[in-house]
Design a binder for these strands. Structure first.
Lengths: 251, 251
DNA sequence: GAGTGGTCTAGACCACCTT
DNA sequence: AGGTGGTCTAGACCACTCA
């Protein structure tokens, strides 16, 4: 719905509302009303340009806004798509990614991108209480929901606790392997979360533009002796996750 | 540091790295090295434009990127500033905003923006287990750290549990008032968190641009009888908060 | 009133995805 | 090969903040 003529420069429609917000609202309500289903592709930017009679930059502003809200996402140089629903993550439950995604009627998958032995830098050495330089397992994995990559995780494991870890199938639940193969039982979990932007190396692996908003989840798991079992950085697409915690003092 | 000539259009410096990312890196490292202290103001966009010899749109792209990362923020039509450190929020601890901000050597403040009695819409009525239309207290408050507004909260309280609530000083800890004045003791907390964009009404109260990335925290507190004491939506600036949870199965 | 960011236009070339 | 988004330019007017 073109707004007709608008003065160059200036500030938008007859109502004083910026054009890009008006377009945002149109698309948002199209999504809300189901005219654009989850996973559906939006018209191209140039198409929207001619449809609405506004400049491409303005169109893109509306699109960025919707992306920040988590309503749409882009596939690099392919197009803009409606975001699927987010998955709910509960850091107080010990079940891993694979289980809780299945519990929510979605299809998880995990790819091992790399595993290497890395000399512990200072900060990480502190976490594991080893001397800096001690070799540690570093795994990088990509996890997807319904075929869409949603997070990159970088896990550090002490090979003293899990020798020969690389010989197992690491394309599934690591927690399970550590439990069944190495008898490592997690009794304490420390979790940190904060909004972040996905920097180039992560963004490339997720096939998103660098700077896309994300959520960083840092997880440290301990066993009964207070040893660190897993030290894990998860970089999530911000529109793919929702955190839920339910705590009862009495229990 | 101007990169010299660049072809119009195209894709940036001799290294193939986009200009806006190069500028981002410059500013980011200036912040990291302390050349720009927390709270400091950046040069104006037009100043950066002449300094770097790039178009204003490109400058702004770098700025948006840094904003998404939480490194800088803007004050509407005033300028861009270096973000202060984020506050750590632990949903498993029962202490309120005022206490945990003070614990982190910062200065909190709270303003009551409005309090009104609102007929419960369906969703909210469900939460409180009352019939839709029952009048409930709605408070809107703005909370700041070191004088910078960081969150808007909308709290719903059942007046049946807290009659005459509006006669108390609501510019401080609500949890304390409910505890000491109404003997309401929270034994269970349910917390949901998700990245969001701050929509117009919230953005105006925080004095940020609509669409600024944020974090929504929804908190539901119950007493021993399972009654809902507080139902609270907190809209945070995304660069102001960091969530931390530490859970021990054994305790 | 000078300066700031906010919105907008109308072009351009490029790298990459898709077919 | 054609279309898509990604990057970039060089202007403009506006609403607002600040001194």
């Amino acid at each position: 719905m073109p707004s007709g003529l608008t003065l160059p420069g200036g500030r938008g429609g007859e109502d004083g509302r910026p054009h890009y917000l008006a377009l945002r609202d149109q698309i948002a309500s199209a999504i809300a009303m189901g005219k654009l289903a989850a996973g559906a592709r939006l018209p191209s930017e140039r198409q929207l340009q001619t449809d609405t009679g506004t400049a491409r930059g303005t169109i893109r502003e509306a699109l960025f806004q919707l992306e920040a809200e988590g309503l749409i996402y882009r596939r690099d140089r392919s197009g803009w798509y409606v975001s699927p629903p987010a998955i709910t993550y509960d850091p107080t439950r010990w079940t891993g990614f694979m289980s809780y995604v299945i519990d929510q009627q979605r299809t998880p998958s995990t790819e091992l991108l790399s595993i290497e032995s890395v000399a512990a830098p200072m900060g990480v050495a502190d976490v594991f209480r080893v001397v800096p330089g001690t070799p540690l397992h570093h795994l990088t994995r990509r996890r997807s929901i319904d075929g869409r990559a949603v997070l990159i995780e970088r896990i550090v494991v002490d090979p003293a606790l899990a020798p020969g870890l690389e010989q197992h199938d690491l394309g599934g639940s690591l927690t399970r392997i550590l439990g069944t193969e190495y008898a490592l039982k997690v009794v304490r979990n420390r979790v940190d979360m904060r909004p972040c932007a996905l920097t180039t190396s992560i963004a490339d692996m997720l096939n998103v533009k660098p700077g896309t908003p994300g959520l960083l989840v840092v997880r440290t798991s301990f066993d009964a002796e207070g040893r660190v079992i897993e030290y894990d950085h998860e970089y999530w697409r911000h529109d793919a996750i929702r955190v839920h915690v339910d705590l009862d003092i009495r229990s």
